[in-house]
Nucleic acid binder design. Structure first.
Lengths: 338, 338
DNA sequence: AGTTGGCACTCGAAACGGACGAGTGCCAGG
DNA sequence: CCTGGCACTCGTCCGTTTCGAGTGCCAACT
């Protein structure tokens, strides 16, 4: 077990390194923090911390920098969540309240988050699988071509084209629309399939294939994963770190363009509590020197999607966590109002 | 006027510089191209070209690089549009045909364009102002709260919330929906306003304020500019150039995050023909060493939106122009089919 | 007039090398 | 267990040198 003072030394190292971005030595530490001991003692502690894998030195005769394990300990045990100032909170609220629709809420959120944290922001669209149905609309485009529009309680709209095996009349369409809505409006997506399973049977034999086609498309839309879109912003902030190596920025940019990767980054986070994944804890090369701070947000008690930021492992964790949490809360409020 | 050979020298300089990314000298030029003259002669020509402002030298005793003016001449007079290979064309077509809806078409297009050109790709959503109305749907959310859904012939869907001054019954809603659709379906957006101007008058006095509110929101949606969204991809390609200066990548990334800037970049392009804007011709600092190649695309004869790429001024213009044009054509085909 | 070879010159990039100093590990004494 | 002292390491900084690609100019040639 680490003694109280050694923990304190680790905390000091993390704080200084995050501030200066330079390896921190024993002398500088004692000068900038009241540890009550001499540099020599700190050196011993540092040697111990290094043996345990919490810190490392880039090269001999240089200062120490925290390892992923060190940051992990810092986040778990040593760091609180720094709340935002009142002014910042008001600014967030004002900015979000100007949004006109869901797209706008998401767009504003991502900009806001990038600006406040000065890092790369990720915002997942309210997930379909946790949403419920507000309305289903069917439109006739051509005789055998139908457009299906699905509206969720989070304000999201999905549309699909359906090619039916037989012509579909307006009466049939109206009938289907009415029955469909009466059955599934207000239902959660996962609950829908059993509710519509036998719906085709109640129609004329000739119409059943067409009805089945529409239903199939509907169910497909409900489970569609690819539509768990994630919006990204603040990529320019990447240039604030890595100032030496455009080489290191490359893989990060590439990773950020892969929706699948982003989904994983946010997706593995636990539902409501905040998740911090540090360095190699992200299962993706190229993100090995970045950390992800993510948290769920939602219109009510339950999280419907996630948002978060991606930054260097050497980030200001307390501040970032505070900002992420605050933004998530306000977005939740805004969504609840609409 | 420039002699034939001097033009040839300029072309050779552009080609070599684009290939090697290094200033090109007189000796190397004569070795790599059959100009039929000696380095000394080329030196004279270079001096002339420099006087005229087509090329410049980064420092004394270095080779020459083309200026913006030089690239301009190259693009206008010396370069053709290099068509893609058959294999590339087939790959494009296959990739685009897998799209399931408009969002998917756009997403695939931007990825494709970034991949083919190995640069940053921009794709503008089919513009609202050139679209026509396919259907308007009205849904009751709460007694005095209505959701308006507008569907365009390009498959795009816009939704808005409307807060009405008075409760809106289902009958009223159905009535309004029917009348609205009968008047404006199939119309171009700019033609809509006069068609609905007097619509409120034909309703009960009590209902008129609510109807007016819905109409107001509808008209607002029609003219909304901000929704001329532009999707961007391939930002990682930025790191292929600028390998020396992460300093230069910064402003570009920042500019690319501003929707307004992107709109301008694409928007000033002429309707159907291809536009190439080189270096300072882009009215935005930070994009002074980048060029934009843009072209309109559309489902029919007319362009409904633009797409293009952003790359360094030292880009392969013929190849890029060929790729951009090819992608635009195939996207147009795909849109026409759906 | 246009082209060519020769030549002196410029100047950035790369290689070299020593001084500097922050930082370390270790040890003996408090 | 803490502390001051000390020898050692090694990366960074900075001035110097070397090297060579490239240039401009000029006289000679066609």
């Amino acid at each position: 077990m680490l003694s109280e003072r050694r923990l304190e030394v680790l905390r000091a190292i993390v704080q200084d390194y995050v501030g200066t971005e330079e390896p921190v030595g024993s002398k500088a530490l004692t000068e900038r923090h009241q540890l009550g001991v001499s540099p020599a003692t700190v050196r011993n502690d540092m040697a111990f911390l290094e043996d345990e894998g919490y810190i490392a030195q880039p090269h001999t005769s240089a200062g120490r920098i925290p390892t992923d394990k060190g940051y992990r300990l810092f986040v778990d045990k040593l760091a609180g969540v720094k709340p935002l100032s009142g002014a910042e909170r008001r600014a967030i609220q004002n900015f979000l309240e100007g949004a006109v629709d869901l797209d706008d809420v998401v767009a504003r959120t991502v900009r806001l988050l990038a600006q406040v944290t000065r890092q790369v922001a990720l915002v997942q669209y309210p997930s379909l699988t946790r949403s419920s149905v507000r309305h289903v609309e069917l439109l006739s485009l051509a005789s055998a071509r139908v457009m299906l529009v699905l509206i969720t309680d989070t304000g999201r709209v999905e549309q699909r084209f359906v090619d039916c095996p037989a012509p579909v009349g307006e009466n049939l369409l109206a009938d289907l629309r009415a029955r469909l809505n009466s059955r599934i409006v207000g239902r959660r997506f996962p609950d829908v399939p059993p509710l519509v399973q036998d719906l085709a049977d109640s129609f004329e034999v000739d119409d059943r294939p067409s009805v089945a086609a529409v239903l199939a498309t509907l169910l497909e839309t409900l489970v569609e994963e690819k539509e768990e879109r994630i919006v990204l912003g603040g990529a320019a902030n990447l240039t604030r770190f890595h100032h030496d190596f455009p080489l290191t920025i490359r893989p990060v940019l590439e990773a950020l363009e892969e929706q699948m990767v982003l989904l994983k980054l946010l997706g593995e986070a636990n539902d409501s509590s905040m998740t911090v994944r540090i360095g190699h804890e992200n299962f993706h090369e190229g993100l090995n020197s970045t950390s992800v701070v993510a948290v769920g947000y939602g219109s009510g008690d339950e999280a419907v999607a996630k948002l978060g930021v991606v930054g260097p492992t050497r980030m200001d964790y307390p501040g970032t966590m505070g900002a992420v949490r605050a933004v998530a809360r306000y977005v939740g409020q805004i969504l609840a109002e609409s």
